[in-house]
Amino acid sequence: MTEDAQSWSSSMETGPSGESFLQKIFRRLSTTQCLKLGANEAAPVAVVSVQRYLSEQPEEGQPGSYSYDVTVTDGAFRAKCLLHATLNHLVHVNELRTGGDVTVTRWSLVYNERRLGRGYVCIEGVSCNEGASAVLARVSCVHALPRASCVHALPVLVARGVGPHGHAPLQLGRKHYLPLWNNDDPEGDIWSSGPPPSDTVLDVSRIALLSSLESSFRTSWKPLPLLVRIIHKSRLRYYGKFGLKIDFPYQAYYEVADQSGSMSMVLWNELCPDFYRRLDVGTVLLLQDYTLKQSYSHRSRPQMDHHRMKSFTSVEICLNPRKPASVITVVSPKKVQPDWGLPEVCYRFAAR
Score class of each variant (00 low, 15 high):
Ser295Gln: 04
Ile123Cys: 04
Ala148Lys: 09
Asp74Arg: 11
Thr73Phe: 02
Met1Trp: 02
Leu209Gly: 15
Leu157His: 10
Ser260Pro: 08
Lys24Phe: 10
Pro225Phe: 05
Gly261Glu: 13
Lys80Ser: 09
Leu209Ile: 00
Ser193Gly: 08
Gly15His: 11
Tyr296Val: 04
Phe77Arg: 15
Pro169Phe: 14
Gly161Asn: 01
Thr32Pro: 01
Glu187Phe: 14
Asp203Leu: 07
Pro146Phe: 00
Gly125Lys: 03
Glu270Arg: 15
Glu60His: 04
Leu236Met: 14
Ile190Tyr: 04
Leu209Phe: 13
Ser127Pro: 03
Tyr276Ile: 13
Ser55Lys: 09
Thr14Cys: 13
Glu255Thr: 15
Gln62Phe: 12
Gly18Lys: 06
Phe275Val: 05
Lys323Ser: 15
Val139Ala: 04
Ser67Arg: 09
Glu3Ala: 09
Tyr238Ile: 06
Asn88Met: 02
Lys241Gly: 01
Gly131Ile: 06
Arg237Met: 06
Leu83Cys: 03
Ala208His: 11
Leu22Ile: 09
Tyr254Lys: 03
Thr219Arg: 00
His176Cys: 08
Leu96Val: 02
Leu244Gln: 07
Glu19Leu: 08
Thr14Val: 13
His89Glu: 06
Pro343Tyr: 02
Asp69Pro: 01
Asn129Thr: 07
Cys122Thr: 11
Asn320Asp: 05
Asn40His: 09
Asp289Lys: 08
Val91Ser: 00
His307Glu: 09
Asp274Met: 13
Asn269Glu: 14
Cys272Glu: 08
Asp339Glu: 13
Gln33Thr: 05
Leu342Asn: 03
Thr86Glu: 10
Thr313Gln: 07
Ile230Trp: 00
Glu59Lys: 06
Val204Asp: 14
Arg229Pro: 03
Ser260Cys: 05
Cys34Arg: 04
Asp69Phe: 03
Arg299Asp: 08
Glu95Asp: 01
Ile231Tyr: 08
Tyr238Val: 12
Met1His: 07
Val330Ser: 11
Ala159Arg: 04
Pro164Leu: 06
Pro63Asn: 14
Ser295Arg: 03
Pro58His: 00
Val91Trp: 00
Leu236Glu: 10
Thr73Gly: 02
Gly64Val: 11
Ala153Cys: 10
Met1Ala: 04
Val201His: 12
Val142Gly: 00
Ser295Gly: 03
His143Leu: 05
Glu316Tyr: 02
Ser314Tyr: 05
His92Met: 02
Thr103Gly: 01
Gly15Cys: 12
Ser297Tyr: 03
Arg52Gln: 14
Ser65Leu: 07
Ser30Trp: 11
Pro197Val: 02
Gln33Glu: 12
Ser314Pro: 07
Ala79Cys: 12
Met309Leu: 07
Leu96Asp: 01
Ser108Ile: 07
Asp101Ile: 07
Val110His: 07
Lys323Asp: 15
Val91Gln: 00
Ser67Phe: 03
Arg237Lys: 12
Cys34Ser: 12
Leu35Asp: 10
